[in-house]
């Protein structure tokens, strides 16, 4: 009963009830699966090298988004500035990537 009241209070204040471990364990299983998939893709010599590179980078981005959303709570409400800060950092990082690729390969 006491715990229930607490949850109700929490809902009024922030719009979410404290979540259990379920989502976090799902995020862990997905991360393990994506990691295994990336290692298996590299071990498969029948695949084209460029395809493997693009494929594993997409897997990495997907895994990063899942960990940011669930483990770092970015999916929760009230994370506008968090997303803004990280997006700004990512923008500068992508600029550096484009510079590196332009500098070396063209």
């Amino acid at each position: 009963m006491e715990a229930n009241q607490e949850q109700v209070q929490d809902r009024v204040k922030r719009g979410t009830i404290h979540e259990g471990p379920k989502n976090h364990i799902i995020a862990f299983v997905i991360s393990i699966f994506l990691t295994l998939l990336a290692f298996m893709a590299v071990a498969n010599t029948a695949l084209d090298a460029t395809f493997i590179k693009i494929f594993i980078v997409i897997l990495a981005i997907f895994q990063a988004v899942i960990q940011l959303a669930f483990w770092m709570h970015m999916k929760d409400r009230g994370h506008f500035f968090q997303i803004l800060f990280l997006a700004t950092g990512t923008f500068v990082a992508i600029t550096a990537f484009i510079m590196a690729i332009y500098w070396v390969w063209w």
Binding site: F81, Q82, F85, L86, T88, G89, T90, V92, A93, I94, A96, F97, M99, A100, I101, W103, V104
Partner: peptide, 21 residues
């Protein structure tokens, strides 16, 4: 701390770009 993590993204992003190059 999230502002700091934004800065860390830039730090690691540039190190990754250097490594790629």
């Amino acid at each position: 701390f999230w502002l700091f993590l934004g800065g860390e993204t830039v730090l690691f992003g540039t190190l990754f770009a250097t490594f790629l190059a």
